[in-house]
């Protein structure tokens, strides 16, 4: 077994034997379960609130399966992206802080191999968490609301996954470039908010990864949007972030 596959194997075992399992997959699965339930209960909660205030009448249309999926996508767009940022910031910084990078990198594994293995393992966790989350959300939604239109939700989730993967690779780069996890988290959140702001500028939005954030919503509501540039720029950005992570880490002293 090569050094690279040995290290990748360590990453896999680490995922199942440490807190790493509970961050992304735990949060995603939790939200996948809660989102449909909250959607189902929202009218009752609002009615109960209205009943406690005399004179207030709230009319809420009956929730649908699409509302449940919209709720979950909203959570993915915010809470899970923040979890991706926090988990991604630890990718390399945590190994450096713990001193484990020193013991590993004085053995025959290159720094590029180290970074790529860390990125692959984090991406694998993200993909599995998303697939499981989507499956659980669909199952819960079908149980609570009956069968709805699943395809737009799956398309929106796939677009979100592409965006989240790019954010994760951005965080791998920041984790390699910065001294510790905290400033990497700060920089990551700043850049993510910057992308959210870009969604308000159509020219930039339609030719950058910010377009995926907007396309997400469009996919759920069945609107057509141009996806080529956002997808291409997201893929290029991800590759550039990974290459930059290797570049930064090769230059970093341990």
């Amino acid at each position: 077994m090569s050094a690279f596959s040995t290290f990748l194997g360590k990453e896999r075992r680490e995922t199942f034997r440490t807190w790493r399992l509970w961050i992304l997959p735990g949060i995603t699965l939790g939200l996948a379960l809660l989102s449909p339930v909250l959607t189902r209960l929202t009218p009752e909660l609002l009615r109960a609130t209205a009943n406690s205030q005399p004179g207030v009448v709230i009319h809420v249309p009956p929730p649908t399966a699409r509302d449940s999926y919209v709720q979950f996508m909203g959570n993915l767009d915010q809470l899970v992206i923040i979890a991706v940022i926090i988990a991604g910031a630890a990718t390399i910084a945590a190994e450096r802080r713990a001193g484990t990078a020193v013991l590993v990198l004085t053995k025959p594994i290159s720094r590029a191999g180290f970074v790529v293995a860390k990125a692959i393992s984090q991406l694998a966790v993200l993909v599995c968490a998303t697939v499981l989350g989507v499956a659980v959300c669909i199952a819960t939604t079908v149980a609570l609301f009956g069968a709805g239109s699943i395809a737009p939700f799956v398309a929106a989730a796939a677009l979100w996954l592409a965006f989240a993967a790019m954010i994760l690779l951005l965080m791998v780069m920041l984790s390699a470039a910065m001294r510790s996890q905290a400033p990497a988290v700060g920089a990551g959140i700043g850049l993510w908010i910057g992308l959210l702001v870009f969604t308000g500028f159509p020219l930039i939005r339609d030719h950058s990864p910010a377009g995926i954030i907007a396309a997400n919503d469009a996919a759920l509501t069945g609107r057509d949007v141009a996806l080529l540039w956002p997808l291409v720029t997201t893929a290029i950005a991800g590759a550039v972030f990974l290459a930059a992570a290797i570049w930064f880490f090769r230059r970093r002293e341990l």
Binding site: A98, G99, A101, V102, L103, T106, K107, P108, I109
Partner: peptide, 19 residues
């Protein structure tokens, strides 16, 4: 890697995977 494969190294405070 060829040279690294012939070297053993112990830092002053070795860091291990606690799990």
């Amino acid at each position: 890697n060829q040279i690294r494969s012939q070297i053993g190294f112990l830092p002053d405070v070795p860091g291990f995977y606690g799990w």
